[in-house]
C-alpha cells in the first residue's frame, strides 16, 4: 500500500478548502487566545502586573501548584501500576476494569465534583462522621485534591498502556531469567523504555490538573485566599467585573497551555518512536 504525499494546493477547490480551514482556525480557535492577551493588557502593563501580584492571586497560584503537586505524582504511580498489571498479566474482567479506568474522561467534570460532596459533604454518607471528628474535606484542600485526582486519573495510564502493549515483555523476561529482581527489572529495563511516554502523560496530566475548573468548583466553596485555585480565581474576579484581573490570571493559565502544547509537539517530534505508536490527545 502506498500513501499519498501532501502537495501544494493548486486547483481552485483546494485553495478554497485551505482558505476555509485557515480562516476557521484563526476565528474559532486562535482569536479567543489573542483576546485573553488583549483584555489583560487593555489598561496597560501596570494594572496587569499589579493584579498578578495581589495576595489573592498569589495564594491561588500557590494552591494550584500544591493541588497539582499532590494529584499528579499519585496518578503517575497509579498509571505505572495499572499499565504494568494490564499489559504484563492476563486476568478476568480486564476489559471491564479498562472501561472503568476511562470513565473520568467521559463523565462531566461537574459529576466528578459532586460525587465527593455526596460522600463527604454536610449531608453526605460520611458527613456526620467527619463533622463529629472535625475533619474538613469539602471546601478544603483534600476535596480539591481528590476531585483533581478523579478528573486526571486516566492520563498517565492511557499513555503507558498502548506503548507497553507494543513493546512486549521479551526484555523483562530476559532480565528475570538472568536473575534480576523485580525492582531491578522495573528500574533498569521497563522505566528506561517508557520514560518519554511517562513524561508525556505526566505533562498532559499536570496541564489538566492545573486548569481543571468544573470539578474543583463544586468542592471548593470559593473561599478567597483559601480554596480558590487559579481557574476559580478567574471566575470570582470575572463575576465581580474585574476584567483586567480575571484576564491577567487567565494569561498565566494560557501561558501554561502554550508551554504544554510546545513541549507536547517537541516530544511527539523528537521521541515519536518511544511514545505510543499513534497520536492521541
Amino acid at each position: 500500500m502506498k500513501v499519498r504525499a501532501p502537495e501544494a494546493p493548486k486547483s481552485f477547490p483546494a485553495l478554497v478548502l485551505l482558505a476555509f480551514a485557515v480562516l476557521w482556525m484563526a476565528l474559532v480557535i486562535l482569536l479567543p487566545l489573542v483576546n485573553v492577551l488583549a483584555e489583560a493588557f487593555k489598561q496597560g502593563v501596570q494594572p496587569y502586573l499589579s493584579s498578578i501580584v495581589q495576595p489573592d492571586a498569589l495564594s491561588a497560584i500557590r494552591l494550584t501548584l500544591l493541588v497539582a503537586g499532590i494529584a499528579v505524582p499519585l496518578n503517575a504511580v497509579f498509571g505505572i501500576a495499572a499499565a504494568w498489571c494490564f499489559t504484563r498479566f492476563d486476568f478476568p474482567l480486564k476489559g471491564l476494569l479498562l472501561s472503568i479506568l476511562d470513565l473520568p474522561f467521559t463523565i462531566s467534570p461537574v459529576i466528578s465534583g459532586i460525587v465527593w460532596v455526596l460522600l463527604f459533604g454536610a449531608h453526605g454518607w460520611f458527613g456526620a462522621f467527619l463533622q463529629a471528628h472535625d475533619i474538613k474535606i469539602i471546601y478544603a484542600l483534600p476535596g480539591l485534591v481528590i476531585a483533581t485526582i478523579l478528573v486526571t486519573l486516566p492520563f498517565v495510564a492511557r499513555e503507558l498502556i498502548p506503548l507497553m502493549q507494543d513493546q512486549g515483555t521479551d526484555e523483562e523476561v530476559a532480565a528475570v531469567t538472568l536473575g534480576a529482581s523485580g525492582w531491578d527489572v522495573f528500574f533498569r529495563v521497563t522505566l528506561p523504555n517508557i520514560k518519554w511516554a511517562l513524561t508525556y502523560g505526566v505533562l498532559l496530566c499536570t496541564a489538566r490538573a492545573m486548569g481543571e475548573f468544573g470539578a474543583v468548583s463544586v468542592v471548593s466553596g470559593h473561599i478567597r485566599g483559601l480554596t480558590n485555585t487559579l481557574p476559580l480565581h478567574i471566575e470570582v474576579l470575572y463575576n465581580e467585573y474585574d476584567s483586567v484581573g480575571a484576564f491577567a490570571a487567565a494569561t498565566l493559565l494560557a501561558g501554561l497551555a502554550l508551554v504544554t502544547l510546545v513541549l507536547k509537539s517537541l516530544l511527539e517530534w523528537r521521541f515519536a518512536d518511544e511514545l505510543a505508536a499513534h497520536r492521541r490527545h
Binding site: A21, V22, M25, I29, L30, L31, P32, L33, N35, V36, E39, P109, A207, M210, G211, E212, F213, G214, P231, L232, I234, E235, Y238, S243, A246, F247, A250, L253, A254, L256, A257, L258, T260, L261, V262, K264, S265, H281
Partner: peptide, 25 residues
C-alpha cells in the same frame, strides 16, 4: 505545523480561560 499544533489548543486551554475569553469576545 503551526496550524496542526493549534488544533490541540481547546484541549490544552483551561476551560475557565476559554469561557471568559469567549464571553468577552
Amino acid at each position: 505545523s503551526l496550524l496542526d499544533a493549534l488544533v490541540d489548543l481547546p484541549f490544552a486551554l483551561p476551560t475557565a480561560v476559554a469561557g471568559v475569553s469567549l464571553c468577552s469576545m
